[in-house]
Design a binder for these strands. Structure first.
Lengths: 153, 153
DNA sequence: TGCTAATCAGCAACTCTTGTTGACTGGCTC
DNA sequence: GAGCCAGTCAACAAGAGTTGCTGATTAGCA
């Protein structure tokens, strides 16, 4: 993801206005290795700006998603997660603490080998491939507390 | 998935009661190649049993999931989908009509090649791998109406 | 400084799902 | 067949997550 400064420029260059609320959200996302939910971003931003509303956080996250600066991923955790990592990657999801890890995996052009029920998926054009590895992170597997990143609600 | 008759037996053998509502739900799922949502199953069942409640459909689908007869998948479509296909498989999701197709894909032991940020996901034990191919089905890509299966809401 | 469109906060409402509750019923025993 | 009871039912409401609406506020520009 771009730095907060670069994001500010990108916002301005698109005719969007730069507000303190948005800057606070940029800061919260900057260098954040977790995959925060909107609620989680809201909590982080409220520390410095208690008056901000959850509505504004959703709006700004959606704006960033529209601009392609972050991506919205649904990992089946009940809420959408926002991912500042724009490199091609997939996800490890810990079923213990709901922490999400990025992971780089090469999947070699899977489509030619697809076995699709006749008449159903043939002719399907694949735009993107999401791979989600579910399991337990080392800490949870060891019965310890989740990593320092903690559960991202 | 088992046939409605086999499911009835399975229910009885587990001490669960067999009600007309449940049988109607078994029938709706039997041989259903789509990946219906609870609401969609509800609609199908209501054709023959208008008095059934959505609550009962959820309850029965969850019972079947608990019994391992069907599986619940979250494909980021806003609602859970129930998948009678118990064979190992992955999913094609059409972003046009939200139709879900089953697909058999071999992914060769991906973990050894994982590149996980140091200190984060190392030691992660993978239980299951979900692969979701997103794109357009042939009909939607051609700008036509969705397949006969129709949009599964 | 003043204007204007974009943005804000707050509220309500929406969708999906599940908890609660009192009434009903399938399956068992007698 | 009658009676019992755990399991199941429908209806209602509520919870979580998200978004639409609206009047007030504000960033950015001239």
């Amino acid at each position: 993801m771009k730095s907060p400064t670069e994001l500010s420029e990108a916002f301005r260059s698109q005719g969007r206005k730069l507000t303190p609320q948005r800057q606070a959200i940029f800061d919260a996302l900057d260098g954040n290795p977790s995959h925060p939910s909107a609620e989680s971003v809201y909590d982080m931003v409220r520390v410095h700006m208690p008056s901000i509303s959850l509505r504004t956080v959703y709006q700004t996250l959606n704006d960033l998603t529209e601009m392609g600066e972050i991506s919205q991923v649904d990992l089946g955790l009940g809420s959408a997660r926002f991912d500042p990592n724009n490199e091609p990657h997939h996800h490890l999801v810990c079923s213990g603490c709901a922490t999400v890890f990025d992971v780089a995996v090469e999947v070699d052009s899977p489509l030619p080998d697809l076995e699709v029920p006749a008449g159903l998926g043939d002719g399907f054009v694949v735009d993107s491939t999401d791979i989600i590895f579910r399991g337990m992170c080392a800490r949870c597997a060891a019965g310890q507390q989740p990593t320092d990143l903690g559960p991202v609600p």
